[in-house]
């Protein structure tokens, strides 16, 4: 019996491997990854690097303005995302929702929103509201809602029933239960997640400009169209510094929030 199983396993494994190999070969041929191209990699890279160094920032004021715009898009997108997510999360959380079907509906909606990448949302909103930072903010807000509703709702679902009982027993109304009981208990976990989302949003905000949704990404595309590789590197370095700075900032905030959580659960 077990011997037969083993044989079966071996057979199916063999089939899988050969299928994977065939797929690999077909892909190689179809995508035209020719050996001569690979051979050229080094000389091309050499040329690119020669053109990139030294990096320049041609128009510092303009670049700085674009960088700040990216930051603003990230902040605004995160803020609106948080506001809508908190509201929706209470409808999504099974222990708070007015009706269980509303919970499923909101969760399904969030899953759908989450499944569509931020860049696609940006393209959709550009069609809807035109170029500029507005579609960027909307894209990030919507994409944030997809993730935050899920994590907020899960946090709310894990809340101790005793906290809810405490306020209900005093004659508190449902909204008082939420605001005086639930929110103070989970606020630090909410803050942790929101800060994490801001970190993600800032990364997105730097590239949203590539599709025309405002911010520093546009400068990168502009430089690449002019084949100004040294400027591209300059802009990339600015992006790198922004993201790194944000990472340090969010780590600092997260540590503080975590500390508060540890103190609370002690």
């Amino acid at each position: 019996m077990s011997k037969m199983n083993k044989q079966n396993n071996n057979l199916s494994r063999g089939i899988l491997w050969s299928l994977a190999f065939i797929f690999f070969v077909i892909s190689l041929l179809q995508l035209d990854i020719a050996p001569e191209k690979l051979a050229n990699i080094f000389s091309r890279t050499q040329r690119l690097l020669d053109n990139m160094f030294p990096p320049v920032i041609d128009d510092p004021i303009n670049i700085a303005g674009a960088a700040i715009e990216s930051l603003q898009i990230a902040v605004m997108g995160t803020l609106w995302g948080i506001i809508f997510s908190i509201l929706l999360a209470f409808f999504a959380a099974k222990n708070m929702t007015p009706h269980i079907s509303i919970s499923y509906l909101v969760k399904a909606l969030a899953a759908f929103v989450r499944a569509v990448p931020a860049l696609i949302w940006a393209l959709l909103f550009i069609i809807a509201v035109g170029l500029g930072p507005t579609p960027g903010i909307l894209a990030l807000a919507v994409n944030s809602v997809g993730m935050l509703v899920k994590v907020y709702a899960e946090t709310i679902e894990e809340i101790d029933q005793r906290v809810i009982d405490a306020i209900r027993a005093t004659g508190g109304s449902p909204i008082q239960v939420v605001m005086q009981g639930v929110l103070p208990t989970i606020s630090s976990i909410f803050i942790s997640w929101s800060v994490f989302r801001f970190d993600i949003n800032l990364r997105y905000a730097t590239v949203l400009g590539v599709v025309g949704a405002g911010g520093i990404g546009w400068e990168l595309i502009r430089a690449s169209r002019m084949i100004a590789y040294n400027e591209m590197l300059g802009v990339t370095i600015v992006m790198f510094i922004m993201v790194l700075g944000a990472e340090y900032f969010t780590r600092f905030l997260k540590q503080r929030a975590d500390l508060a959580t540890i103190r609370a659960t002690k």
Binding site: T170, G172, S173, I175, Q176, V178, M179, Q180
Partner: peptide, 13 residues
């Protein structure tokens, strides 16, 4: 929190 039942819902919230 013992006073919540005596307040308007929003004020208490």
């Amino acid at each position: 929190h013992g006073r919540l039942g005596y307040m308007s819902s929003l004020k208490g919230a």
